[in-house]
Simulated assay, not measured.
Amino acid sequence: MTSTTNLLSIGNDTEELYNKLQKTSNPKAYFEFEFENHMRKLLLNGKKPKELDEKSIQIGRFVAAEITRNGKQYYEFGPDRYETGVIVSVCSFVPNDMVFRVKNKIAKEHWVNENVIQCKKNSMCNIQSIVCECYQEECNDIYQYLCYLNK
């Protein structure tokens, strides 16, 4: 007796290869594979990520640049568009939001306009640490959100 049953195939061969780990003696490879699968389940509902379009990448850079005019020290903050005087540059999901984080850490009397402050000379280390603190806050917020998604 012959069977006339048809089987329904879900997925394709490339998906099957994508989800299987090649045998290796490197334990780090297993962690990376498991981490990638776990993040895919959390963020993409288990689907394979799409190919990245370089023009649509949301991560930008936030920069603090040092400017000296008329013997006065200024620092300008914003998305990476500065070519000279950069004292700190960090990756950020929302570079414009970083200005608000910095504004909360620096006294109002220092602000000259929306994204420029005037400070004493030799305050570069202080500005760098403030920007790094704000960057760490953003990283913590992202981590907290990922923990929330994991629950």
Score class of each variant (00 low, 15 high):
I117A: 07
D141Y: 04
G46D: 10
I10L: 15
C134S: 08
S56V: 04
C134Y: 00
N26H: 06
D80Q: 04
T14H: 15
K105W: 11
E83M: 14
D97A: 05
E109L: 08
K108H: 09
F77I: 01
S25P: 03
D97E: 09
D141F: 01
K20W: 05
C134A: 14
R69F: 03
F93Y: 10
L17M: 09
P49S: 13
E51T: 10
K108N: 13
Y18G: 05
N126M: 12
P27G: 03
N104G: 13
E133I: 03
V88I: 13
V90M: 11
T84N: 14
L52G: 06
Q73G: 01
Y135I: 01
Y18M: 08
C147M: 14
F31W: 15
N37G: 10
V94G: 02
I57R: 11
I117K: 03
I57L: 14
R40T: 12
N126H: 11
E32A: 10
L7I: 04
Y74Q: 02
Q58F: 05
V63W: 01
E32T: 10
D53F: 06
R101N: 06
V116T: 14
T24I: 02
F93K: 04
Q118I: 00
N26I: 01
G85D: 05
R101S: 05
A65S: 14
L146M: 06
P79S: 15
S3F: 10
N140M: 08
N113L: 06
K120R: 13
L8K: 08
V88D: 10
E32S: 10
E83C: 12
E133Q: 10
E114I: 01
S89Y: 05
V63H: 02
N104L: 13
D13Y: 05
S25Y: 07
G85Q: 09
E34H: 14
K55R: 10
N140E: 11
M98C: 00
T14D: 15
S56G: 04
V99T: 01
F31T: 14
